[in-house]
Design a protein around this nucleic acid. Structure first.
Lengths: 190, 190
DNA sequence: CTTAAACTACCGACCGTTCGGTAGGGAGAG
DNA sequence: CTCTCCCTACCGAACGGTCGGTAGTTTAAG
């Protein structure tokens, strides 16, 4: 059993039961180990959560940066960013769910160290939108509110998306992108 | 101490620590009672959560229905619905946070009884958007995806909104409404 | 022989919950 | 007016069980 195996099982258990609702015994059972054996690999339950959050955030940030570096129109970049992020959310559902839903369970010390990374990821989205506004491709009152609406809609999918549902994450991403780019109104705007 | 006092404090504690992270002793302390005394008013910790969720959902559904009944254009109705929902979210932050974030802590039996009410609330939003499409005022590929994007953006505010932040919930609501109605693109759509 | 990784056995603390009991305030009978 | 009875609200103490975490031992591979 490797560190990674434990993390993967822990993410699964945390997603199902929540951090406080899941016990070390639950994690141990999921990874087919005795509870005490977990402490050979990790110092504490908190440490498992912290590493999960770090890894998850690093992953989504990395993938986002990769999209940002592409040579594309801002509109297309936004579309692809949404597609990549939501695809990550479906492929690494356990990991990202923990990132989005359980980071409030971090102890204050770890929590405050986690926040800056989180902000960095959110800023990438703000910057992307801001770039569109600067170019004249986008138009919106508040860039930060637009970014938060966008991220909110996408993040919230962890609460209802099922892999065996009627739509794939790519379809959902395209649907969201159309909505955010064109809006609901049938007539063009002034 | 009334049942309501306990519920209010419980919502506050659940929001801060999560359902599983909060103990009956925490709730008792918040309402200045011994934890044994809580069992005079409620049968179990689960029962407190259940009643909180029921009340919260009933409240937002009621307010939403009130807006739906107004004689307005569909666009204006959507704007007002968003304003009312987000205002509720800021005024009853504890209650709605528990509704949105802790309902997964319900035991399966209660959970399945809760779901239909939840669906009923979400359907109101879908119906509102569908009405706009039928009238020709709105245009979107998938009504249910639009509703979920809308609700996701709004629900996610519980994770970042602070009452002492730079924007009021009304401003945020208007900002979100403009974004969802007009979209990001600067040029009119085809 | 060493060392990493797993085990069994256990700890004190805390969990949700229950129990027996009490303070105080009406309600009804005499 | 008072005595009895009951009721609501609450409390201190304790219950069985589970929690995160530790100590010490065995296993297995290099």
């Amino acid at each position: 059993m490797t560190r990674d195996d434990i993390l993967q099982s822990a993410a699964q258990v945390f997603r199902q039961k929540g951090f406080h609702g899941a016990s070390m015994a639950d994690i141990a059972e999921a990874v087919q180990l005795q509870k005490a054996s977990l402490y050979h690999h990790f110092g504490s339950k908190q440490e498992i959560l912290l590493e999960l959050l770090d890894r998850a955030l690093e992953m989504v940030t990395e993938r986002m940066a990769e999209v940002m570096a592409r040579e594309l129109s801002t509109e297309e970049k936004l579309r692809q960013a949404m597609r990549v992020y939501l695809k990550t959310l479906s492929e690494q559902g356990d990991l990202v769910s923990v990132l989005l839903l359980e980071f409030r369970s971090l102890e204050p010390a770890f929590y405050s160290r986690h926040i800056p990374n989180r902000d960095r990821f959110e800023r990438m989205w703000r910057d992307l939108i801001q770039q569109g506004v600067d170019e004249g491709a986008f138009r919106c009152e508040s860039v930060s509110m637009a970014a938060r609406a966008l991220l909110g809609a996408m993040n919230w999918t962890v609460t209802w998306y099922r892999r065996d549902g009627p739509m794939t994450m790519e379809q959902i991403a395209d649907s969201f992108a159309d909505l955010f780019l064109n809006g609901l109104l049938a007539i063009g705007h002034s």
